[in-house]
Design a protein around this nucleic acid. Structure first.
Lengths: 216, 216
DNA sequence: GTCTATATCTTGATAGAC
DNA sequence: GTCTATCAAGATATAGAC
């Protein structure tokens, strides 16, 4: 993973933690906002409620994040930093990379709050003029290119069938992850997300790999 | 397809077309509303703008649809009626059914407006207290059950591998359709949706079918 | 069926005191 | 850094005339 959108959509409110005390306030606000956004979406959530959640008045919150958009972008940026600790995409082969997606899903089940928030925001950002549109768009594009490149490398070294449309498969994989998250959001207990992803990925690997007999 | 949510979420405003003249007004409003919802989402779209689009004042529109929710539910119900004309799910085998999904995707490329509206509403309905939550929830559940049952029938007649988790595959297929629609909404020209779906479905069929040698 | 006028509510944001 | 008070905008919905 380690996908980082460009800096042109960084918010002014993202300047790093200044003081230890102020930072904890900021963190509390970010957590409360993510909680609200994860359930009501960005548009419908009222930042006055977020303020209440952390025991602040609305102007008190706006002192830390001047606008609602600043608050949203701060959450997105924070996620970016945290997910940097995930898989090191560069050192993975196409196979270990795909298998790593299962691990990501497994890890995500431990932070349903975060997953929920980002799935909701991802979906919501499809609408016109949504402030998170650029962030998710860049992220999806980079992820698609990275997966496709991984697969293409596999083709070049003869480990992936030559006739595989790497770009199409990359699109497929992302669609599956996003789509499963949507179904899981609707009815979290209705199926085992990690199991379904694992089943898909393992089948995909078998389908993609060059048959040993024909291997170069 | 032909998936019909229960009637408990029918809106009062859905009583069938009364007069020929009034109906065309209603149709124009529904079309304009779908156009707005497909771009701005339900929550963000203002019905006053919809009224303007059809040359009515806001109270003029509210005469036809007493509330915004009535307008939304009328759109959902209309879609239900139209999609009845799609695949006859009962007469399909698991194989023809899955292949039929490719045809549905192909058909949908001809009505991007509708697809866009329903993908947006589907995503938006994941939030708390969304008026379309029940409709999409029931629809997803019925679709899942139908696909799973189709596959299970294939297992019973020995045409599908015995160790296939039919419920998981059904979930997978729906996730793929929904996920691809999201990616397509973000960047409609970035890939060939029908092609990707066809690639996935055709691979899936090969993976699911019992090998001729071991067939019962 | 459609309009003008209005009521009511919610929200994001600002001014200025402490 | 945080508050009270206030503003301004935008939205749904209603009242009542034509």
């Amino acid at each position: 993973m380690t996908i980082r959108p460009g800096t042109e959509i960084q918010s002014e409110g993202v300047r790093r933690r200044n003081s230890a005390k102020g930072a904890s306030r900021r963190e509390a606000i970010l957590a409360a906002a993510m909680h609200r956004f994860s359930r009501e979406g960005y548009q419908s959530a009222a930042i006055a409620d977020v303020a209440k959640d952390v025991g602040l008045s609305l102007p008190g919150l706006l002192h830390h994040f001047p606008t609602k958009v600043d608050l949203l972008l701060a959450i997105l940026d924070k996620r970016d930093l945290e997910s940097t600790a995930a898989i090191d995409i560069d050192q993975a082969t196409w196979r270990t990379f795909l298998l790593g997606l299962i691990q990501v899903a497994k890890y995500n089940t431990g932070i349903p709050e975060v997953v929920r928030a980002f799935a909701i925001l991802n979906a919501e950002s499809l609408t016109q003029n949504h402030p998170a549109k650029a962030w998710f768009g860049i992220r999806a594009q980079q992820l698609q290119a990275n997966i496709a490149a991984k697969l293409q490398a596999g083709v070049l070294q003869g480990d992936v069938k030559r006739d595989v449309d790497c770009s199409a498969i990359a699109t497929e994989v992302i669609a599956m992850m996003d789509g499963l998250q949507m179904l899981w959001l609707r009815e979290p207990t209705s199926f085992d997300m990690v199991g379904v992803i694992a089943g898909y990925i393992e089948r995909l690997i078998l389908d993609l790999q060059a048959s040993p007999a024909r291997q170069v």
